[in-house]
């Protein structure tokens, strides 16, 4: 199963560690984009070290004052159109945490 999970807050949802999928993606939206841009005590967010494809929504980065170069290199920045393609072409199941 190809599963994509949406994280919309700067917290670490415990359930993430219990989710298993053949292909696993995490999309950071709203305040979830802080996972991709901020460091805590010098370390990046633990969510960035998950075994997953990582994406962040460009509009939510920009509205919070971030540019593409502020985003961790593991994360791919996409817009709403890219998100539609992701949902239809790259994954099957979607979860909003």
């Amino acid at each position: 199963m190809k599963l994509v999970v949406f994280v919309n807050d700067y917290k670490e949802p415990p359930i993430l560690d219990r989710l298993k999928a053949d292909k696993f993606g995490i999309v950071f939206v709203q305040n979830g984009v802080y996972h991709c841009t901020l460091k805590k005590d010098g370390s990046t967010s633990a969510l960035l070290s998950k075994d997953a494809e990582l994406y962040a929504l460009s509009e939510d980065l920009e509205s919070r004052g971030f540019k593409a170069e502020d985003v961790d290199s593991k994360v791919k920045v996409i817009n709403y159109e890219g998100l539609v393609d992701l949902i239809f072409n790259d994954y099957e199941k979607i979860i909003w945490l």
């Binding site: 919309n8 939206v29 709203q30 509009e59 817009n79 709403y80 159109e81 998100l83 539609v84 393609d85 949902i87 239809f88």
Partner: peptide, 20 residues
């Protein structure tokens, strides 16, 4: 309230624009 309903409508708009 939250921006989540905005997210849902913008996603719907992008999907319709792509022909879905």
């Amino acid at each position: 309230g939250s921006m989540t309903l905005d997210f849902a409508v913008k996603l719907a708009e992008a999907a319709v624009k792509k022909g879905h």
